[in-house]
Design a protein around this nucleic acid. Sequence first.
DNA 1: GTGATTGCAAATCTTTTGCACTAAA
DNA 2: TTTAGTGCAAAAGATTTGCAATCAC
Lengths: 137, 137
Amino acid sequence: MDRPYGKVLDKLRGAGLRPTRQRLALARLLFDSGDQHVTAEHLYALSKSADAKVSLATVYNTLHQFKEAGLLREVVVEPGRSYFDTNIDNHHHFYDPQTGELIDIPSSHVTLASLPTPPSGKKVDRVDVVVRLSGSD
Amino acid sequence: MDRPYGKVLDKLRGAGLRPTRQRLALARLLFDSGDQHVTAEHLYALSKSADAKVSLATVYNTLHQFKEAGLLREVVVEPGRSYFDTNIDNHHHFYDPQTGELIDIPSSHVTLASLPTPPSGKKVDRVDVVVRLSGSD
DNA sequence: GTGATTGCAAATCTTTTGCACTAAA
DNA sequence: TTTAGTGCAAAAGATTTGCAATCAC
């Protein structure tokens, strides 16, 4: 392929985000390598390794813009640190507190047979299932 | 009742925690009013209203000690803020991002018909279901 | 007394923000 | 050009930590 930015370019345009050098670089790191879970610091480190000059502030801004645009999902499993998930399909997670690792669980692998009725005036936006792992088997 | 501290005193002793003035005061605020969800700042504010002189640092330390001792459960639903839940039974939560409010869901109201197998060498510690609420019905 | 606990203030960590500068359209 | 986006450094917010003073046993 001769257009290394083609895919993410379309993605950004589709989301109505101006395709700046920084956003393109981060988008490539995020979306060109299959599903992944990154923290801001982690993505910042990735961008450094990739020689993309992006400031940490821009990493934060960009992660939130991508999230607002529906390109990413924020996953909160640990106090004081946010993960961003490039898998935006309906799905759930294993979380290993020992390693800080998140692993996707396809929603088809979790059967929620019944759910309670939300408080009146509210509706269910989303159901997040986090399966916390521990020690060893 | 003539022993306002009796119940929580036993609770602290049972957990192997020295019943100091501060721990007793916080334990009363936490456990003498039915199930509740508090943040550190919230409990700190409560302790002030109750004229219990407890520093914020001690509130944080105490919440974590209570958690270690199994008297509380930590619930993370929002980046940058931890909730502590006095309900330590197996259960789940509604979360309203608009108000920051957590509402217990008895585990009997959520049927998890199937769960995926954890990665080898790991076992399931706990399954947390968070039902995120949105706007209005 | 003696070791555990507390309070304070400083430190830490993640995330956000203000603002001058730069780049995209 | 004109407006959106970026980088830096400072600020903010939650939480933690070091250490001397205090308390429970």
